[in-house]
Every structure is written in structure tokens, then in C-alpha cells.
Design a protein around this nucleic acid. Sequence first.
DNA 1: CGATTATATAACACTATTGTTATATAACCG
DNA 2: CGGTTATATAACAATAGTGTTATATAATCG
Lengths: 107, 107
Amino acid sequence: MANLDAAFSALADPTRRAILARLALGEATVMELVEPFELTQPAISRHLKVLEGAGLIVRRIEGTKRPCRLAPTAVTEIDQWLGMLRRALETNYDRLDGVLAAMKPET
Amino acid sequence: MANLDAAFSALADPTRRAILARLALGEATVMELVEPFELTQPAISRHLKVLEGAGLIVRRIEGTKRPCRLAPTAVTEIDQWLGMLRRALETNYDRLDGVLAAMKPET
DNA sequence: CGATTATATAACACTATTGTTATATAACCG
DNA sequence: CGGTTATATAACAATAGTGTTATATAATCG
């Protein structure tokens, strides 16, 4: 589960989430990703490195350009881990705890 | 979307994910959560504060104890945001990009 | 080839995160 | 009331993350 560290950590940054949101519209080069932000190109390049390291994007080489696009692997891992929480939240145990907690001020 | 920062950031730490996994089994007090880790009580208390701030857990007061349990809010938010990525990954655009990239070495 | 364009990396400053120990608060027990 | 138990907070050190500027690399264009 070491990759979950990288994946969640990558998603914790709003700039990186914005980059992913942009890539959800389709492939983009580094300079295309720099343009909408008030950040320098090296800053974006490093964000991309983080996203790639986390398995959230992949890059191919096309001449001097490196177009990026979304990769499915990390999202799948995250979904699987969150599934554990979702299942627990759907469990009656927690509902009962909630009910008991809510009852307290009444009685 | 400011809360996504806190939620993803909270999930980026393996200790905090382990705490959540433990809470998926049911409510636990701070000392019960300290026990399985090689960390001090103040360290766990701060992790719990982070998880609470991110909306991933809630705590109630029961005498001198503060039992924690999972909260659904942040998980829902995260699911919704990830849904955007999932939908994009299911899109043909990205499939086509992938196909074109894969074709390149052949021709 | 030399200039330009696209991207990466190094070095540095600043801030945030995480852990520790020591201490505060507050409920409980006898 | 006084001691114990449960938890929180403060102060500090060590480390990691993010941004910047300056510079390196490498493909492209004339």
C-alpha cells in the first residue's frame, strides 16, 4: 500500500488536482498546462513528476514535447481502499453508534 | 473544494489510514488507537485532530473518554471528485490517445 | 550550424508536517 | 479531597514540500 501514500499525497495539492481536471478534458503538453496557472514552468514540471510518480498520469515523448494524459492505475487503487471505508460506513454498527449518541441529550 | 485539500492530505499518511481502517471495525477511544502503534499518545491525538478537521471522523464525549468513529462526509466528497477522473478515464478520447501512442512504434 | 522552443534539474528559501517530551485539564475512584 | 486515568496542548527539532531563479539538455527551424 506504499503507493497510496504517493497517490493521496499527490491529490492533496489543489494545483495538481486542477492539472488532473484539465487532463480529464484530454491530453496536454507541459506548456499547455503551465498557461492557465500563475506558476512557473519548473513548478508545473515538478507537479507533473509527482503525478507521474503516483501513477496518476503517463507521459509520452513526441519530439521535444511530452504530452501527458490521465492514467487509471492510481485511481483504481484509491477506489479500492476507499471501498473499505464505504462498506464500514454502510454497516449497522456505525448507524447504531450514531443513534445512541443522538439519543443521549434526549433522555 | 478547500475541503478536498484536507481530506486527501489526511489520507496521505499511512498512520492515519491505519487509524481509519481500525475505526472501520467500530468505534475506539484515543488510548485504544494508541495501543497498536509505536507512537506516543500526543502523536495519535494530533492525527485524530487532522482526521476530524478533514471530516473523516467524528468524536463524542463520554466522561473522560472521546470515542472516535468514521464520518461519511469527506468520503462522499472524495468520491464525487474522483468520479470526474473515472468518467474521463472511461472516455473514448483517452482510449484513442492510447491507441495512437501504441501504434507509433509499429508503423 | 546557430537560434529557438520545450522540458528538466539544481540550488536555495520558506513553510508545513510529524514526531518527541513536558505539562495542562478534566473526569473518575476511593 | 488526592491520586489516577484519559486526552489535549505547547515548545521544539528534524524532515519534507513548494515555489523561485538560473542553468542544462535536446529537438526543431531557418
